[in-house]
Simulated assay, not measured.
Amino acid sequence: MRRVVRKCLLQQRLFSVEPRTSTKIQQESKHRTQSNSIKEAERVVGYSTSFLNLRWLLNDEIANTAMYMKKLTGTEHPLLKVAKDVLFKSTTPSWGLIVLLISKASGLKKEFSAIDQDITAGILHSQRVLAEVTEMVRTSYLIHNGVITVNNNMLNADVLNYGNKIALLSGDYLLSKSFNDLSNLRNQTVNEIISSAIRDFSESLFLSYGDYDFPVAHKPKFLKDKTEYCKEFTSDKVDYGPYKVDEILGYPKEEWVLRNVLASGNLLGKSCRAALLVAGHDEQAQQSAYLFGKHLSLAWQANIDLQGFKEGKVDFVSAPVMLTLEEEPELYEVFQRAVYDNNIDSIIHLVEKGNGLEKTKCLQDEYTQRALDNLEYFERNTATESLKHLIDVI
């Protein structure tokens, strides 16, 4: 493993930080490529992801919600940015689309009546419901993340508290709707799988050391104290959780993986697993689907962290910072102080000085390859090819 990382670092020797603002031509070209790939994937599953959009998920409530959110204009409440990103500028395809594609790729392992399936797409109606539930749960998590700590002495404190109420109620509405849709499937095992994913991302919110608004990594521990469980945590061994959190926190790379598996990886992975379960697939196929979704999520998160760093969006638990800490644990107090002082420039300087960016690119490549390896379990068809193309362009 060390030789693989060393080789990757050597290959990335010439990797340098690009300007933090891309040209409009590059952005438009990338957006067109992503958009075309997503449209092609939608044609494969016969389902437009506009049906997984927040506008549709909230149905008639969206008009009322939008009216209330107008009051937040000019307050810089993070809920506004969350809503904008969810509605117009997602950096990854709909996760519901990924669930539908893996469902299409795997096929059906037993006979189902015409009522239970979409014959033209080769996907069960229950798998479409799971795709919608996945998107609702993920969106609720993003909206709930828009809640901030408000000091009564802050300017516009009343309006900011009002924004927190909207975030809580909107997120809760989506969660309740997702549970209602899950219950209509009448499959207790699927309920347990998705519920465990919700448990995981709830747990992820309590991992930070310090202020909730400024997530802080745990102080690095000595590598010699790393347990076998911690070493195996980042392997391809299937572990649906709960995890031994105390044995992982403090080891920067493993902690980054833990945070993002809990926050997002398990939702996508377990949703892919549940989609194969309802189609009658065996445990091995379900495990391959779970690992595919989990690794794909981690690869995308590494890319998001890397691109965000180039744009000056830095936090203490992003991959470039965590992987810099793994190499130089003595920087922990410096980073911690910089986060609380909001001194982003000093963090950027220290990370650029080390190998954090190169290691993040290697981490992205590592989990991208793992996702592709797990995808090889399924027969080659239009859905698997569409997934590979999405991975490539994103």
Rank of each mutant, 00 (worst) to 15 (best):
I115T: 14
F309A: 09
N191T: 10
N153Q: 15
V159W: 00
N151L: 01
S204A: 13
R337H: 08
I166F: 04
L291W: 05
F214W: 02
E132G: 13
L52T: 08
M322A: 11
N184G: 10
R380T: 14
G308Y: 03
K89W: 09
F201Y: 12
N187W: 00
L87H: 09
S195V: 11
T73S: 12
L291F: 09
K313S: 11
A217T: 05
V137S: 00
Q188E: 15
E247N: 10
Q301H: 08
T92L: 14
F201P: 03
R337M: 07
T360N: 07
G146M: 00
E40D: 14
A299I: 06
T65S: 08
N153E: 15
K294P: 11
E42L: 06
V45S: 09
L174E: 04
F335P: 03
L169T: 13
T33H: 13
R13E: 13
K219E: 07
T33R: 15
D158Y: 11
T120F: 13
D172Y: 05
L276W: 09
K104A: 07
V393F: 06
L101E: 05
L262N: 04
L223H: 13
R259Q: 08
E255T: 08
T382F: 10
N64G: 13
E311I: 00
E366P: 01
I391K: 03
T139R: 01
Q307M: 14
Y47T: 10
G241W: 00
V44H: 07
P220C: 06
N374T: 04
I193D: 03
S113N: 09
S196C: 00
G265E: 04
N153H: 12
G241D: 06
V45R: 06
R32P: 07
I344N: 04
T149P: 01
Y251T: 01
I194M: 02
S94M: 01
I148Q: 02
V334F: 10
R337D: 07
L331T: 03
G293H: 03
S126G: 07
V147C: 04
E385D: 15
L160D: 03
